[in-house]
Design a protein around this nucleic acid. Structure first.
Lengths: 200, 200, 200, 200
DNA sequence: GTCTAAGCGAGACGGTACGTCCAGTCTTCCG
DNA sequence: CGGAAGACTGGACGTACCGTCTCGCTTAGAC
């Protein structure tokens, strides 16, 4: 997400990668102890031992900074491996998601980021980008499932994403219901009932 | 949510109901044209021709004000009538939800409110409260379905809520995918496959 | 110079005179220990235990704040009393001026204020205002001198002001030559030679 | 004032005189359209098509840059020629001063430079240096006048400088009264009355 | 003909202060 | 005493420059 091809190799002093690191590190630290709304650019800058300018030069807004920091906090992406069955793949994906989510700052910042995204199209773009790997993973799982005959041909991966991430988000942001193994199990069961060829 | 019972009938000048109205009206107007984060108590007060004090006397925070205003914007609650079948009841519920949501300020306001709720337990309480009628409606639908033998006994209404409001929220806040008749149809189909006794 | 008729007696909380005092006091203190350019609104606010807003509400700029503070620092105006002779009056005026100037913050801030005045017409107005009592004093002295026959009729007080404040300013800002009794003596002598009827 | 002797003739690339020119030209331009305080090193650099470093390599501060630029803007120094009488010499000097002053950026820049000088001893040195030719000119005029018997022996040229540059500065910075022929005439008259042997 | 120190434009760096905006509270007067 | 007005403290915002520091390059005298 760092983007803007750094190999512009334009003239002038190049950006110091240590500063990049310091900013992201400080951002994660502040997020952890102050939460989304308690996080200010000012404090991040102070904590990173960096001028505010150096942050604004890299990120146009708090939300882009935080999104980048959260993305890097843990390597949020994990391999979508082939377990041999669609249900297995899904289970692995859901459990992996939960594990990463619960351990990272994403859990704290997601509501704030999504709120911002609702108002700013640029942020929306960032969010979509950040979600694309999930879309891709589900797509792969569904494709393999169809090949194996476990999932109905013509199944739209987007709907599967609705079924997986929808309840997850709902619990995270509204009901605060637990995101545990039982939840994952039910999720997989529902998906397989909805799009499976001969589930149970 | 209109604040505490006004019939304290204490001494002194009673609250002016015109002020209540002016505040709520101005809040909705400002929300519509500035969005959640662009809405400030200051502007609402100015627009309503009211002192900031008169707002703070009624609402402890922006989020409670907005929640009240949004709730009244359209009567967001609607009766959950009995259509004769579980699938019909669900369809009615989902379509009603969509109709109310898409026409009201809730749609603009929800992400912001949920973000606030993630950090402030008081707000979380408000949100839970605001969601309770949906929980109740789903509960009633499920109960009738079980009675009729359409829905598996022991079905947890909470899971059904996950399946209905989860994707809805996900589309609203993340993918911005359409919330239309087709979506509603799929939603109902999935729910019935997941918890129906002999769907299709 | 506080101006803006406070007796608008409009509704709303009236300005707190303690805040006025705190601001001016802090300004003088900061000026003394940091000098003109080292004085920041930020520090004045902090020192006064006052929000920056409360300063900006009263003064549109640093220079107006400082001008007001300096004016009040010592009652810079002093009575122009009648000593019986034009030379005596002038001497009293010059010595009084020196005494007040050297003891107040004016000495430190004058260059900065005048620099600002050179660029901002509003500030120029403030300066003119602040100088008007000197113009008036000289005017009175000249008038009395003409009456007594000591000063040539038709003498323009403005020129006398040139002769008095010009060298004073020049020494203060350029040569840093001493502003002492000898200087005052010479000043008076020159003025009397230039506009006196029969000096020496 | 062009900075230190360039004939160090050390190794390395010599300074590009085009850069010198570009900097000074841009400085004058920016001074004219933005005034003293609106002039920033950053803009001068941009306007000159030059790196900030190239300016800082030549001038340690804004004030030295500006002083140099202003000095070169017009050849501010002019010969103090012998007109045959002290009054004539003085008149020539004053009129020359006015002519140079009013046409150059000095007029805009002087207040700012003097304000800086009030706080920074290094700048004060620069100012004193810049004023020395005036001191010298007046000295020469006074010396010739004494020789001719027109000016009282023992007259301190410094006082004459007070009487000439004082009112000039005062009008320039405080009263904004006109600096015209009449003013010059009065100035000369006053000086001659104050230090002349038998004026009129 | 290399070497090499200095100059060059560009622009990132840590900082500081700016003036603005809101939050939520407090204080006045009017009805 | 309720309500409107608006001043209060406080703190983050995003901007603008400061003066310093790399960068990769050019220039031209010294070797």
């Amino acid at each position: 997400m760092v983007s803007e091809a750094n190999d512009a190799r334009g003239r002038g002093r190049p950006r110091d990668p240590k500063v990049d690191e310091a900013i992201l590190g400080a951002t994660v630290a502040v997020l952890r102890e102050r939460g989304w709304s308690g996080t200010t650019i000012e404090e991040v800058a102070a904590r990173a031992g960096v001028g505010k300018t150096s942050i604004y030069r890299r990120y146009p807004s708090k939300v882009t900074l935080v999104a980048d920091a959260a993305t890097r906090d843990r390597e949020s992406v994990f391999p979508s491996f082939d377990t041999g069955s669609a249900a297995g793949d899904l289970m692995a994906f859901v459990l992996g998601s939960l594990r990463r989510l619960l351990g990272s700052v994403w859990q704290d910042v997601l509501p704030g980021v999504l709120a911002e995204a609702a108002e700013d199209p640029d942020v929306r773009e960032v969010v979509k980008e950040a979600w694309s790997w999930r879309r891709a993973s589900i797509g792969a799982i569904v494709a393999r499932g169809i090949e194996r005959g476990e999932i109905q041909p013509g199944t739209d991966p987007e709907h599967v994403l609705d079924m997986v991430d929808g309840p997850l988000l709902f619990r995270l942001m509204v009901t605060k219901a637990p995101l545990d193994y039982g939840f994952a199990d039910q999720l997989v069961d529902r998906v397989m009932r909805a799009v499976g060829s001969h589930w149970r």
